[in-house]
């Protein structure tokens, strides 16, 4: 099946605290494989970095405190079951900035790449990726939609569904 005709699978959940968001991240993290790319969408304060902390735990990081906002460094790298490349495009100005950072090399490498503020650099994402969109429903709750772009990522959405919401 080519990508254009691929039907997106989506999994939606509502989280009710940062800890809850982190737990969802942890479940996503436990389903990841080398070479996976995750694009995070969501406004300021929607829980993107919190989700990354959870993904880190799901990938076997011992201490999620190592995961911080990467807005300053733009790329942070963490040691885990699979190396994690944490991108933060908050201060970037388009896909070209991502290319100039060498994102391609990392996207096609053996690590897991997570891109915060993916909407700012959408053109630099590979054809296939896992989209995670976070939105603020109320001060304490976040709607999180996880959807597959490409067949490769269907397993993650199915995996999340399998374990229930």
């Amino acid at each position: 099946m080519n990508i254009a005709s691929h039907t997106r699978l989506a999994f939606t959940a509502t989280t009710h605290s940062p800890e809850d968001t982190m737990r969802l991240g942890q479940r996503i993290g436990s389903l990841l494989e080398p070479g996976d790319v995750i694009a995070l969408f969501g406004s300021l304060g929607s829980g993107k970095t919190t989700l990354v902390k959870g993904i880190g735990l799901g990938l076997g990081m011992k201490d999620s405190r190592e995961v911080r906002s990467a807005s300053f460094l733009i790329i942070a790298e963490y040691k885990a079951r699979i190396p994690i490349y944490h991108f933060d495009a908050y201060r970037l100005d388009g896909p070209e900035d991502m290319y100039n950072l060498g994102c391609d090399e990392l996207f096609w490498g053996d690590g897991v790449s997570i891109v915060e503020w993916a909407d700012r650099v959408e053109g630099s994402l590979p054809e296939e990726y896992l989209e995670v969109s976070l939105s603020i429903e109320s001060p304490n709750s976040r709607r999180v939609e996880v959807s597959s772009h490409g067949k490769r990522y269907e397993r993650i959405v199915r995996g999340l569904e399998g374990k229930g919401p």
């Binding site: 733009i74 908050y90 201060r91 970037l92 100005d93 070209e96 900035d97 100039n100 950072l101």
Partner: peptide, 8 residues
């Protein structure tokens, strides 16, 4: 112009 640091 960009409201932040653009690494390149």
């Amino acid at each position: 112009r960009f409201g932040g640091v653009v690494p390149e």
